[in-house]
C-alpha cells in the first residue's frame, strides 16, 4: 500500500507516486512557491488597480461594472477550485494517494472563501443593477449550493477521530457535489435566468470591450496564481504537520 509512507523516510517511486514522497513534494513545492506568489500578487494588484481607476465606466452600468473585477475571478476560482477538489477526491478514493487527501482538505477552505466572495460581490452588484440583492434563479441558487458543498466538505473532512474515515466520507461528498459544476456553468443556457450569460467563453470572442477586458484578464490570471500559492503553502504546511506528528509519536514510543 502506498498510504502511510508519507511520514517515513522518502524513497523514490514511479509515476504519480513519485510525488507521494513527502520529501520530494516539499522540495518541489518550495521551489514552485515563489513563482506562484509574487507574479500572482503583482498581476492581481495591477489588475484590481486598473479595474478601479483605468478601465472606462460601462455605457449603461457606469462604475458598478467595476465589481466584476472582484466577482469574475472569485466565481472562476470557486468553480475551478471545486474541480480540483473533486479531482483530488477521486485520486484519494481510487488510488488512496495520501497527498490527495491533504490536498482535498486544504483546497476546501480556500474555495469556500472564493465562493463566498463571488456571492457577496454578486449581491453588491445585483442591488444597484437588477434592483434586488438576491433572486432565486438557477445560476444564483446553484452557486449557493456550491458554497454549501464547500462548507459541508470542510466540516466532514474534520469530523472523524480517524482521519482516514474523514477523507473517505469527504471525498464521496465532494464527488457527489461535482454534479453541481456543469449545472452552474450551463444554468444560464439551459434555463432563462436573471443572471446574464457568460461574457468570456473559450469558443466565441469576448463581449467585453478591450479597455475593460485587459484588467479583468490580469485579475483572473493573478487571482489564479494566488489561489495556487495559497493552496501550495497550506499543503506544504499540512505535509510538515503530518511529519511532525509522526516524528513525535516515534520519539514517544522510543522513550516509552
Amino acid at each position: 500500500m502506498d498510504a502511510g509512507t508519507l511520514a517515513t523516510t522518502p524513497r523514490s517511486g514511479r509515476g504519480l507516486h513519485r510525488f507521494a514522497n513527502p520529501g520530494r513534494f516539499l522540495r518541489l513545492a518550495s521551489r514552485v512557491q515563489p513563482f506562484l506568489t509574487w507574479p500572482g500578487l503583482a498581476l492581481l494588484l495591477i489588475g484590481l488597480y486598473a479595474g478601479l481607476f483605468i478601465a472606462p465606466p460601462d455605457y449603461q452600468q457606469h462604475d458598478a461594472m467595476r465589481i466584476m473585477y472582484v466577482h469574475v475571478p472569485a466565481a472562476i476560482l470557486a468553480e475551478t477550485g471545486y474541480w480540483a477538489l473533486a479531482a483530488a477526491s477521486l485520486v484519494s478514493l481510487v488510488w488512496r494517494h495520501p497527498l490527495a487527501d491533504l490536498a482535498a482538505k486544504e483546497i476546501g477552505p480556500v474555495g469556500a472563501g472564493c465562493a463566498l466572495l463571488c456571492l457577496a460581490s454578486g449581491s453588491l452588484w445585483g442591488k444597484p443593477m437588477w434592483g434586488a440583492w438576491w433572486v432565486w434563479d438557477a445560476r444564483l441558487t446553484s452557486v449557493l449550493v456550491l458554497f454549501f458543498l464547500y462548507i459541508g466538505h470542510i466540516l466532514v473532512i474534520r469530523a472523524f477521530d480517524d482521519p482516514e474515515r474523514g477523507y473517505r466520507a469527504a471525498a464521496i461528498l465532494a464527488l457527489i457535489g461535482a454534479i453541481d459544476l456543469p449545472i452552474i456553468k450551463y444554468s444560464v443556457v439551459w434555463w432563462n435566468t436573471l443572471h446574464q450569460p457568460a461574457s468570456l467563453t473559450l469558443t466565441g470572442s469576448p463581449t467585453i470591450a478591450w479597455p475593460m477586458l485587459w484588467p479583468l484578464l490580469l485579475c483572473i490570471v493573478g487571482a489564479s496564481l494566488c489561489f495556487g500559492a495559497v493552496v501550495t503553502a497550506r499543503l506544504r504546511a499540512a505535509v510538515m504537520e503530518r511529519r511532525i506528528a509522526t516524528l513525535l509519536r516515534a520519539q514517544a514510543e522510543q522513550a516509552g
Binding site: A64, V70, L117, L124, W125, K127, C226
Partner: peptide, 29 residues
C-alpha cells in the same frame, strides 16, 4: 464614481478574505 458604496464593499470584502487566506497560510507555513 457612481455606486461607490457597492464598489467599495466588494473590493473591501475581497481584500479582507484574500489577505486572511494569504496571511493564515504564510503564518502557518
Amino acid at each position: 464614481m457612481t455606486h461607490l458604496p457597492y464598489i467599495a464593499g466588494a473590493y473591501g470584502l475581497f481584500a479582507l478574505v484574500a489577505s486572511w487566506l494569504g496571511l493564515d497560510a504564510r503564518l502557518r507555513l
